[in-house]
């Protein structure tokens, strides 16, 4: 399988289709994966592809606007391309998507890759990328979508318990903003949290400010989060951020029957206005 990726990548570099192929290589722990920007055939030989390849590489397309780039995408990552094309952030014809079918990736952190599937994979219904120019099959037995188990557990809690739960989570936020930096949907030139005039979020690292940060960010991603789960994976203090995103994703799906990034044509609910929606509210 990785041979197919390598030979396609070399072909794309050689014939000048792209200048760079973004794939995965083994990390320095010898166990997990890391992104690799390959500009030469020798670098392409370092590519790997397995269930430790957790990163959403399509996020890097935001750093390579206008530059012909090939990128290895799993199904969840592929939704990034549709999202960013639809939001006019990248040009589809500058991107060559090497799609990889995915049986799910595992919890992989420095020095250890467990057998356990990531929470995002449990809730994922895509086996084949939503968009690709070339398709490779990653072997492995696929998990089936089981709804949002963590979210369902959360919904059984009382509002008071939920508030207490989230306060506990936000208390330890160090406001590194890594969740934003890794997010393919967070590309505002100046993020609201960095704005000074007006100041939306105070500089203090304290639960009220931290809560404003996380909740506003989640709302900015409502109907846009493509559920790659990268925010939760990177959070250095283990805040279960995908719970917020999944809650909003479930609401949007329930209300509008819409999941972002599945194609580049269907307009997202927050980009269109339908008169009957206004009626329904009444």
């Amino acid at each position: 399988m990785v041979d197919e990726i390598r030979s396609k990548a070399k072909e794309l570099l050689t014939d000048g289709t792209v200048e760079c192929v973004i794939g995965y290589e083994r990390a320095t722990d010898g166990v997990t994966a890391r992104p690799l920007f390959a500009y030469t055939a020798e670098e392409i030989d370092r590519f790997i592809m397995d269930n430790t390849c957790v990163h959403n590489l399509a996020r890097y397309l935001l750093d390579r606007k206008g530059k012909p780039t090939a990128v290895v995408v799993k199904p969840c990552d592929s939704r990034t391309i549709n999202l960013l094309v639809q939001e006019n952030q990248i040009e589809r014809d500058k991107v060559f998507a090497i799609g990889v079918t995915c049986p799910g990736v595992v919890e992989a952190h420095w020095g250890e890759a467990s057998d356990e599937a990531q929470p995002r994979c449990v809730t994922c219904s895509l086996e084949v990328p939503a968009v690709y120019d070339y398709l490779v099959t990653m072997p492995g037995e696929r998990q089936t979508r089981t709804g949002f188990p963590d979210l369902e557990r959360m919904e059984t809690m009382s509002p008071e318990e939920r508030r207490e739960f989230w306060e506990r989570q936000f208390e330890r936020c160090i406001r590194c903003h890594a969740c934003r930096q890794v997010c393919p949907g967070c590309y505002c030139p100046i993020c609201f949290v960095d704005q000074l005039d007006p100041t939306w979020v105070g500089i203090r690292n304290a639960p009220p400010e931290n809560q404003v940060w996380h909740l506003i960010r989640a709302f900015h991603l409502a109907g846009r989060c493509i559920e790659c789960g990268e925010c939760q994976r990177v959070c250095p203090v283990g805040i279960p951020l995908m719970l917020l995103n999944q809650k909003l994703a479930a609401e949007v799906e329930g209300m509008f029957d819409f999941r972002p990034g599945l194609d580049a044509e269907t307009l997202p609910p927050f980009a269109v206005f339908k008169k009957e929606e206004l009626e329904a509210e009444r």
Partner: peptide, 28 residues
């Protein structure tokens, strides 16, 4: 530049680091 290719400038390294001391000052 090549190292920066894959960096997402997530700040985690600086925040977990015992020796990184860059700071901001703003009014609340």
């Amino acid at each position: 530049g090549r190292l920066a290719d894959r960096c997402i400038h997530c700040n985690i390294c600086s925040y977990v680091c015992p020796t990184c001391y860059c700071f901001d000052m703003r009014d609340y």
